[in-house]
């Protein structure tokens, strides 16, 4: 009787303590004593990464963020990652910090540097040593992705450039140019769509952005409106003959485009792909410029393809729609805070 009672009490206590300890470790994502190794990374900023966040490699969770310390000089941040020992990392391993999901914490992803040439990883001097209580394993460079506010800033830049571009289109085209332009604009359309998708999926830091976005968006709207006017005026371009000035202008456009490309580089993985497409679009514009310079084709045929103007309109319309959507459904772009 008495022994049985003691047994039961002991059993309940052991069960509860075990549940608490094992549950805590499990929920923290502990690896339960499997061998581990430490990797440190140096980067300019950690964004919203905190201790205990997940570390992934090729999409698989392989560890946790163990410590985050600002370097003594204050020039960079040193993040210690606790990893499973048996995972072989690439030789040119680097760390990219970014949001894990729409709402949740950030994560540290281990990547191969060569896959992300655009990201401005810091150059670590050879022989950089790990420091602190986790001073084992290699030190690799890292880069934290920018947040949504920067993304919308880029969108603004794009729309400004589109507006400027269309202004310069005023000047000169032939049929081929028109064809090329059509496809270029199709590409631009795709860009816009992707930017839109990007904005929609990357809205985890949107809390502070709504205000930001609003002023940004007003600017986009006015830019788009200006662009539309411009495209209407393309209708009256038949008689333009100042080829030289056209050539000069187109050259300026391409220079601008190159600028855009530079300005946008390394914003995000999704954005990177977008930019690749933008790049090819701009290459075409380059080619158009070259053709015009060599005097090929006739401007009279420019508007034989009447779809051109329509296409351009569509692009701008979509930008407009995006802005409207952001205004009307700000919640879709705002962080959902439950706890």
């Amino acid at each position: 009787m008495r022994e049985g009672r003691e047994l039961l009490v002991g059993f309940v206590i052991i069960a509860a303590v075990t549940a608490a300890v094992v549950g805590t470790l499990w929920l923290q994502g502990s690896n339960f004593g499997r061998p581990t190794t430490t990797v440190q990374t140096l980067l300019a900023s950690v964004g919203q990464l905190t201790q205990g966040n997940a570390v992934t490699y090729r999409g698989v969770r392989i560890g946790t963020v163990e410590a985050i310390e600002v370097e003594p000089g204050g020039a960079s941040v040193r993040v210690s990652l606790l990893l499973q020992e048996n995972v072989g990392l690439p030789d040119d391993a680097a760390v990219v910090l970014g949001p894990e999901s729409l709402f949740g914490a950030w994560q540290a992803e281990i990547v191969s540097r060569q896959n992300y040439p655009r990201y401005p990883f810091p150059e670590l001097p050879a022989g950089t040593l790990p420091t602190g209580p986790h001073a084992v394993g290699p030190v690799i460079p890292g880069y934290a992705l920018p947040e949504l506010s920067r993304l919308t800033a880029s969108a603004e830049e794009i729309s400004l450039n589109v507006a400027e571009l269309s202004e310069r289109f005023e000047v000169a085209f032939n049929q081929e140019t028109a064809d090329n332009l059509t496809s270029a604009i199709t590409n631009l359309e795709a860009i816009t769509q992707e930017v839109r998708a990007l904005v929609q999926t990357q809205s985890e830091v949107a809390g502070a952005i709504i205000a930001n976005a609003d002023s940004t968006l007003i600017e986009i709207v006015s830019a788009a409106r200006a662009a539309r006017n411009t495209f209407t005026r393309v209708d009256g371009l038949f008689e333009d003959t100042e080829i030289d000035s056209i050539v000069a202008n187109i050259s300026a456009v391409t220079a601008d485009l190159a600028l855009i490309t530079e300005g946008l580089s390394g914003e995000d993985e999704g954005l990177a792909a977008t930019l690749e497409r933008a790049d090819s679009a701009f290459t075409r514009v380059d080619r158009i410029a070259a053709r015009i310079e060599s005097g090929e084709g006739s401007l009279g045929r420019l508007l034989a393809d009447s779809t051109l103007a329509v296409r351009a309109e569509e692009v701008l319309l979509q930008l407009d729609l995006l802005l409207q959507d952001v205004r009307e459904n700000p919640r879709r772009y705002v962080r959902l805070s439950i706890f």
Binding site: V9, V12, I13, A15, A16, V17, A19, A20
Partner: peptide, 9 residues
């Protein structure tokens, strides 16, 4: 002693 145990379970 026992309340926390019961609560954890």
């Amino acid at each position: 002693i026992m309340f926390p145990m019961v609560v954890i379970l």
